[in-house]
Design a protein around this nucleic acid. Structure first.
Length: 566
RNA sequence: CGGGAUGUGGCGCAGUUUGGUAGCGCACAUGACUGGGGGUCAUGUGGUCGCCGGUUCGAAUCCGGCCAUCCCGACCA
């Protein structure tokens, strides 16, 4: 690949309004261009990286005997109506019509198509279990595309789907997939964690996300400092607190003018927020419902949404409705004498002598105690864990980190096979709907995740596994010294003969420009040929941002081929 | 959808308050000098100022409408 013959429009300045490293560097280094909100063109260098990621994913899918197919991007509405998702999906599903005014959608995922494929073509239990995958463009009309590739509307995902007669094989495929994802990320060279994840509305018994650790990540993950426990904060749990201490104080009503937040109440009373209780009012199915948490804790809406009697989707109550039914405003609510049903978080339930709203504006109680002053039932876990919490089994403490979700595997169960009437006969001739698993891996997002983890001030630092080329060959001063040009051409030739991918910067640019572009592009091995080193009969070599060395041509072969084993 | 911002050559920006017919840096082209970390000088090319309408003798600038992109909140690979 000759630089002079390749579209690599590097930018001297940072593009405007890009505060995520991956987006900034992909644009600056000439890998990617944005066409529209969340829609991108991959330029030659970027496309090569993409293909490398795809190749690794493909190999690992083949290793676990998944069969590669390619399903359509434009899909008829009928299948989506059959599964019920045509109605459920909302605006995220981009709907279009053909010339006959028939409804179609751009595929955000392929459960319907693969299920239809399966029911029309697989007849016997003997063919199960089986797994199909493809790597294809997806379109999700995200409410807010952002962070470049990390939340694009059009993106490439590897999605795999498995079909099973019995749970045991689903379980096996699930863990095969788990191993495959781990291998993919190991091979790329990413620092990642697999975490227990929320299954969302799909349900099922098990779900894991593969999260690449990065500050720019949109997810928060909780890890134990001394065990394997790791979970998305959406579902992470802390060990429940020990038993509640005995009541010491008697309850008193105190005047707390204008103290409407936990912080201001705690300040006013000279107490820590951990001694207070906060009462949030949300929409229930029949009436308003209160959720009671310790003052310093945050509500986890996903956990709350799953409680009986809470309306889905989760919604906080309207402040006017609260005033009307409780006769006091949001900052003054508390469990004592509260006339609507309530749930108490485990940590709030373990408090004694606490402070809470008096259900009367500008008043709070101090020294309140459960059972004596407010009834206590429905003790639940509805808070987000915080750093330092004990992990669920109590052996270590939780740490929080941010991550980019690049993979998600889960067991679908029979949601699609039942709604779409898939029937397979088992050995006894009984007709059953197969269990399914689905396994997504964000290919384009992974490219962004790699850059988030592998870059410095000067540019990208590609791991060798997915770098657009192995060697960046730079000629310096070839335009006025023909020997330099000849030597560089010759080395370019040689490397190609050795099957080493090389980007050859043969432009008549000043050295500074070439070096700056090379730093930006981030190909791991850099070789410079100029009149100085040519005279000495050596090559100037640098690996990533290491010190420059002078090495021989045969040594270069060693360095480059040694690194190709991974 | 709610809140905030921005749209001016390929990129980054000024000009808008106070209307007078578009400018700077980079990039690009040509030439000279220079020659190992984005060099210097000279001469050039390139813009319906997001779109539509209005006010005005005259609009990038004022008014109205629309569109797009970006940032903060709910979605997800």
């Amino acid at each position: 690949m000759r630089f002079s013959n390749t579209l690599i429009p590097t930018l001297r300045d940072d593009p405007a309004r890009t505060d995520v490293a991956s987006q900034r560097l992909l644009l600056r280094a000439g890998f990617l261009r944005q066409l529209n909100a969340g829609i991108f063109t991959w330029l030659p260098l970027g496309f090569r990286v993409l293909q490398k990621v795809e190749a690794i994913v493909r190999e690992e899918m083949q290793r676990i005997n998944a069969q590669e197919i390619l399903m359509p991007f434009v899909q008829p509405a009928e299948l989506w109506q059959e599964s019920g998702r045509w109605e459920q999906m909302g605006a995220e599903l981009l709907r279009i019509q053909d010339r006959h005014e028939r409804d179609f959608c751009l595929s955000p995922t392929h459960e319907e198509i693969v299920t239809d494929l399966f029911r029309n073509n697989v007849r016997s239990y003997r063919e199960l279990p089986c797994t199909y995958f493809h790597m294809h463009t997806k379109f999700r009309d995200e409410i807010r595309p952002r962070f470049g590739l990390m939340r694009a509307r059009e993106f490439i995902m590897k999605d795999a789907y498995s079909f099973h007669l019995e749970e045991s094989t689903l379980d096996k495929t699930y863990w095969d997939m788990y191993e495959a994802y781990s291998r993919i990320l190991d091979r790329i060279g990413l620092d990642y964690r697999s975490v227990e994840a929320d299954n969302g509305l799909i349900g099922g018994s098990s779900s894991h996300e593969f999260q690449v650790l990065a500050e720019a990540g949109e997810d928060v993950l909780a890890f134990s400092d001394s065990s394997d426990y790791a979970a998305n904060i959406e579902r992470a749990e802390a060990r429940p607190p020990a038993t509640r201490p005995e009541a010491q104080e008697s309850m008193e009503k105190v005047h707390t003018p204008n103290a409407k937040t936990i912080e201001s109440v705690a300040d006013l009373l000279g107490l820590d927020a951990t001694r207070c209780v906060k009462t949030l009012i949300v929409q229930g199915q029949e009436s308003l419902v209160a959720l009671i948490l310790r003052g310093d804790h945050d509500l986890n809406e996903l956990k709350a949404e799953k409680l009986p009697g809470i309306r889905t989707p989760f919604q906080f109550a309207d402040p006017n409705d609260i005033e009307n039914s409780l006769n006091c405003s949001i900052g003054s609510i508390g469990p004592v004498g509260l006339e609507i049903p309530y749930y108490v978080d485990r940590d709030a339930a373990a408090l004694a002598d606490f402070v809470c709203g008096a259900n009367e504006d500008n008043y709070h109680y101090t020294g309140a105690n459960w059972e004596r002053d407010a009834h206590l039932q429905d003790i639940v876990d509805i808070r987000n864990v915080v750093e330092g919490d004990l992990e669920p089994n109590g052996t270590g403490r939780l740490l929080l980190k941010r991550g980019i979700e690049v993979g998600h595997i889960f067991k679908l169960g029979r949601k699609y096979s039942e709604s779409m009437r898939v029937a397979i006969q088992d050995q006894e001739g009984a007709t059953i709907a197969p269990a399914m698993g689905c396994y997504g891996f964000g290919v384009t997002r992974t490219v962004a995740a790699v850059i988030e983890q592998c870059h410095d001030e000067a540019g990208i630092l590609w791991p060798e596994s997915i770098a657009p080329a192995k060697v960046h060959l730079i000629s310096v001063g070839a335009d006025r010294s023909p020997e330099v040009g000849e030597a560089a051409d010759k080395l370019y030739q040689l490397l190609q003969e050795l099957n080493v991918e090389v980007l050859y910067d043969d432009r008549a640019e000043r050295p500074g420009v070439k070096f700056a572009d090379a730093d930006l592009i981030g190909i791991p091995h850099r070789v410079v040929i100029g009149s100085r080193t040519l005279k000495e009969g050596v090559l100037e070599y640098r690996f990533q941002r290491n010190e420059t060395e002078k090495i021989s041509e045969s040594e270069l072969k060693n360095r480059v081929s040694a690194s190709s084993i991974h």
